[in-house]
Design a protein around this nucleic acid. Sequence first.
DNA 1: GTGAAAGCGCTAACAA
DNA 2: TTGTTAGCGCTTTCAC
Lengths: 313, 313
Amino acid sequence: MSRVLNAPDAVSPKTREKVEAAIRTLRFVPSAAARAINSGRTRFVGALVPTLDNAIFARFLAALEHKLAERRLSLVVATTHNDPAIEAEKAKTLVDIGAEGLIVSGITHDPALDDLIERCQLPAIATSYHDPDYHLPTVGYDNAAATALALDYLAGQGHRDIAVVHGPLANNDRTRARLAGLDQVDRAVALQFFETEIAIPGGCRAASAVLAAHRRVSAILCFSDVLALGVLFEMQRNAVRVPDDLSLMGIDDLAASAHSEPGLTTVHLPVSRMGEASATAIAGWIETKERPAPVLLAPDRIIRGSTGAVASG
Amino acid sequence: MSRVLNAPDAVSPKTREKVEAAIRTLRFVPSAAARAINSGRTRFVGALVPTLDNAIFARFLAALEHKLAERRLSLVVATTHNDPAIEAEKAKTLVDIGAEGLIVSGITHDPALDDLIERCQLPAIATSYHDPDYHLPTVGYDNAAATALALDYLAGQGHRDIAVVHGPLANNDRTRARLAGLDQVDRAVALQFFETEIAIPGGCRAASAVLAAHRRVSAILCFSDVLALGVLFEMQRNAVRVPDDLSLMGIDDLAASAHSEPGLTTVHLPVSRMGEASATAIAGWIETKERPAPVLLAPDRIIRGSTGAVASG
DNA sequence: GTGAAAGCGCTAACAA
DNA sequence: TTGTTAGCGCTTTCAC
C-alpha cells in the first residue's frame, strides 16, 4: 500500500484501484510522524521574530513563507518580544516539535539558544543583521549603513540640528547598530535622542517630546517608519508642516510610507528579499548539509516629500 | 534513558548522572518524530490566512500564537491570497507535516479542503465570520452587523450620499457579508460602490475615484481601516478636509487609526480576542475531542474625529 | 509486480 | 529502581 501512495506508476492499475478503494473505505490517513521517522524529515522550519505588530516583520515572514513553500517547507512562527529568554524557550519548543532549521532575528541571544543550535547541529540563520564573523550565517543588511545613509542625506540638505527617534536599546542589537551608524557620518551635526516604543503611539509621544524640547531641530530621523508615521500624525495635529517647518525621515519603507501626505523619505530595507534569501539559505543548508555564506543586502535611500533643504543663511 | 528525560524523579541520582553524561558525550538529541509516533501528538496547529500584509491578520496571528503557546502548541502559518485552491493545497501540506488542527478564514472554501478535514477528522475552526449553522465551528464577528453599525452611524449623522469602498468580492465571503449588512440599515441613503485592493494604494485610488465621481458624497465608508488610511492620505493630498468637507469611517480599528489626524471613526473588530478564542477552541477540541461551540464576538463602534454631522438644511 | 519483513527512535508495559 | 521488550506506522529492502 505504501507503493500506491508513493510510486503509483510501479503498481498495476488493477491493484492500485483495489488499494485505493480500501484506503477510502477504511478512511485511511497516512501518519506524518511515521513518515518523518523514516525520512528523517519533518519539512518545516521555525522562525523567531520579535513581534508581528510591526509590518516590517509581517512582510519578511510573508516572503519567507512564500519562498519556503516553493521548497516544500512550511513555516512555524513564534514571537519573542525581544526577550532572549522567551526566544530560547520558544526555540526549544520548535526543536521539540521537529523544526529542521531556525530563523532568528539579530545576533543577541541567550546562551541557551546557542547551546541548543550547537547541540542539535541545527541549521540556523540570523536575519536583519550583517556580520560575516558571527557564528551563524547572517542574512540581512548593514544597520549602521542604513542610518548613515539617512543622516548623511539630512546633513547634505543642510540640517545641523536633528532629533533621532529610536526604539528600546535593551536586547536590540539592530537599534544599537543603527545608533552606531550615525557616528560614521563625518559632518558637524548636533543630535538629540528620543527613545520610545516602536509603534505609532510611541512615535506620537516622541514627536511631542521633540516639540517640547528646549533646543529646536530642523529635522527628525526615525529608526523605523512606524515611528515616523506616528511623528507625522502628531505634527499634523500640532499644525507643524512637514517638510516646511520640519523635515522627517524614516527607515524601513513600509507600504504606507509611499502614500502618506507628504510621502515619507526613508531608507528602504529589503526585507522581502531578506525573507527569500533566508528561505533559500536555510532550505539549501537543510538539503545539502552545507552551511551557506552570509548574504548582505543593500539598503536604498528613497527621497519623497517629507524632507526638504534648510534655507541657507 | 527514556526515564531520565521524561521522569527524572523516578531515577536514582547516580544513574541519572551517568545517563546525562552519556547524553552529552554522544550529543544525543531526542527525535521529535519518534516521540510523535508514540504520543500521537505533534503539538502544532496550522493557520491559513489570506495575507500577512494587512495588520489585521498579523494582530490575529499574534494573539493566536500567544494563546496557543500557553497550551503548549506551536503555530504554522500559511498564506492563501484569498485563493481557495491555494488554501486547499497548503492545508494539505499542513496536514502532511502533522498539524493537529486547522484555523481557516471565512467559510468559502474549496471542496478539497472540506474533504480533507472530513477525511482526517481534523479539528478545524473558521474565523472572521459568524454562522452557527456552518459545518465548522466559527469564531468571529458578524460582518454584516459591523457595516450596519457603521452605516447606521453615518446615516444618523445626517449623511444621505455615501461612498462605500470595499475590497474584491471574489472568494471573499467577509466582504460580501459586509455588503449585505448595509441593507439592514433602514434609512434612505444613496450609496455608490468602489471596489479596490485592500491596501493603502487601493484606498488612495478609490479616493481619487470618489472625488472624480459625478455625484458628490458627504461621507466615505471603507470596509477596512487600511483602505480608510489610504483615503485619508489622498484627501490630504487633495486638500479635502476630513471631516469638514467629507466624513470618513473605517472598519477594523488598527493601531494607526487611533492616532491619525484626524483619528479614524471606525468599528472595532476584536481580532485579538478572536485569536485567543480560536486558540482556546482548537486546543480544547484537540485535547477533549469535543467539538467547541461557535463563538460570537461583538464589534464595537468607535467615534473619533474623522466623522461629523451634516449641516441640516 | 507483489508480498513479507526488518528497522527507524521512541514510549509504555513488563519483568527482574 | 532498573533492564528488557513490544509496538507505534511508515519506508525500504529483499524474496518471490
